[in-house]
Amino acid sequence: MDITTMKKILLVLTSQDTLGETGEPTGYNVAEASHPWKVFRDAGYFVDFASIEGGQPPRDEVQEADPVQVEFTQDETAKASLYNTPKVSVVDPAQYDAVYLVGGHGTMWDFTGNAALQKLVAAVYDAGGVVGAVCHGPSGLVDVELSNGVRLLSGRKVAAFTNAEEEAVGKQDTVPYLLQDRLEEQGATVKAAENWEENVQVDERLVTGQNPQSAAGVAKEMTKLLTEVVREQKAEEEQAAQALREEHDAEKAEDEQE
């Protein structure tokens, strides 16, 4: 990452508009997009959107009683960005300091196994960036392999939509697999809270949340990590500059002695 282009975050959305073969409509979860969007924007970050297939991604129902969701759906900049999102396959990961995977049941069909999304997530993490995901969004972390050959989820402490929550919404037999089980198969330890209770897990530069109630918390932890990354980069640059100054001083002293 380059400090001069810091503060740019990509939100990735599902393009799946039905729950498998049921015909029941679905899409990205508006709460899980809107609350992080507001956290990132209020913190001064630039927010971009992308989706699996590009174009205007489908969304779940907007909860009109939630002012953040209403603000998000009425914001002209967000509306323009969502009208024609780029495909994840054409996104340049070098442009982003963080990627956040928005949940919604649709992700269970098109996030998992998507090579372009896996490549994007791995590239951002390998470059020292932050990766976040909430609810069903961690389905996009499945099979992500880092440059060192290790799966991103291997040995990680994570949160995601639990088996109990899937049963509570009656979708355990509709989704292609149970997310909690798959994450554990990938070598992750899923830290589960009670149904609909906020639960955010941070493991190095990977931040995950259990449900819609955890979305804002995931974004807040991501911004904390991004702030730390900036501090570390500034410290490294200052150390390099100091070393260069000392080298120049030493060369100057040698020239004067000659």
Rank of each mutant, 00 (worst) to 15 (best):
K38N: 11
V124E: 04
E184R: 02
G113P: 09
A253M: 03
A250D: 08
G209C: 04
V229A: 15
V70E: 01
T85P: 06
A253N: 01
S214R: 03
P212W: 09
E228I: 11
T77R: 14
E236A: 15
V102T: 06
A216G: 05
T227Y: 06
E184P: 00
L117T: 08
K38I: 11
Q180H: 10
H105F: 15
L244S: 13
E61D: 11
I9F: 05
L179K: 00
N148C: 03
A127M: 08
V91N: 09
A123G: 01
Q239I: 01
K252R: 15
D143K: 09
L120Y: 13
E247M: 12
A235S: 15
V150D: 09
V30E: 07
K8P: 04
V134E: 07
T162N: 04
N148T: 05
V124T: 02
V12N: 02
L179D: 12
N163D: 10
G55W: 00
I52W: 00
T107I: 03
L183P: 07
D143W: 03
G44M: 09
E76G: 05
T107A: 07
T77I: 14
K79S: 13
V90Q: 13
V190L: 12
V102L: 07
K8A: 06
V190D: 12
Y28C: 02
E32C: 06
M1Q: 11
K87C: 15
Y83D: 14
G149K: 09
I3E: 09
L117N: 09
D143R: 14
G170F: 08
G23K: 14
G27C: 12
V102W: 02
A43M: 10
Q63D: 14
H136S: 06
S89P: 03
P25F: 01
Y177D: 12
E61G: 14
A216V: 01
G104W: 15
Q172S: 14
A219R: 03
V134H: 05
W37C: 01
D48I: 01
A78D: 00
E61S: 14
D110H: 05
W37D: 03
E64R: 06
R205N: 15
A241G: 02
L152T: 08
V70N: 01
E167W: 07
A219L: 02
A133H: 10
T223C: 08
T189V: 07
N199Q: 10
Q56L: 09
A168L: 08
Q233M: 08
V218Q: 06
K38W: 10
Q69W: 09
P57H: 00
V99S: 04
D2A: 12
A250M: 11
V39E: 00
H105K: 12
Q95S: 13
